Computed example of a mutant assay.
Amino acid sequence: MSNTFKHRNLPHLFLSAREALMLRFRPILSSAGITEQQWRVLRILFDEKHLDAATLAKRAQVLSPSLTRMLRVLEESSFVERHSDPQDLRRQIIRLSALGRKTVIRLSPQIEAVYLELETAIGPRLLSSIYQNVDDMIQRVQGD
Rank of each mutant, 00 (worst) to 15 (best):
S2L: 04
S2G: 08
N3L: 10
N3C: 06
T4E: 07
F5E: 02
K6Q: 05
H7Q: 07
L10Q: 10
L10A: 09
H12M: 12
L13I: 11
L13P: 02
F14A: 11
F14K: 12
L15P: 03
S16A: 12
R18V: 09
E19L: 15
L23A: 08
F25N: 01
R26T: 07
P27K: 04
I28L: 01
L29K: 03
S30E: 01
S30V: 00
S31M: 01
A32S: 02
A32R: 05
G33V: 04
I34M: 06
I34Y: 05
T35A: 06
T35V: 05
R40F: 00
L42Q: 03
I44K: 06
I44V: 10
E48M: 14
H50W: 12
L51Q: 03
A54N: 12
T55A: 13
L56T: 07
K58Y: 12
K58I: 10
R59G: 03
A60L: 10
A60C: 09
V62C: 09
L63F: 13
L63C: 08
S64K: 15
S64V: 13
S64P: 14
S66Q: 10
L67T: 02
L67M: 04
M70P: 08
R72V: 08
R72G: 03
R72W: 04
R72Y: 08
E76R: 15
S77W: 14
S77R: 15
S78C: 07
V80K: 08
E81H: 10
R82Q: 06
R82F: 01
H83M: 08
S84K: 15
S84H: 12
S84D: 01
D85E: 04
D88E: 09
R90G: 01
R90F: 07
R90T: 07
R91F: 07
R91I: 06
L96S: 02
A98C: 00
L99V: 03
R101W: 01
K102D: 01
S108E: 12
V114A: 05
L116I: 11
E119M: 12
L127C: 05
S128W: 12
S128A: 13
S128C: 10
S129G: 11
S129Q: 14
I130L: 14
Y131C: 11
Q132P: 04
D135K: 15
M137E: 02
I138E: 03
I138M: 09
I138G: 06
R140G: 00
Q142T: 07
Q142P: 03
G143N: 03
G143Y: 01
D144R: 15
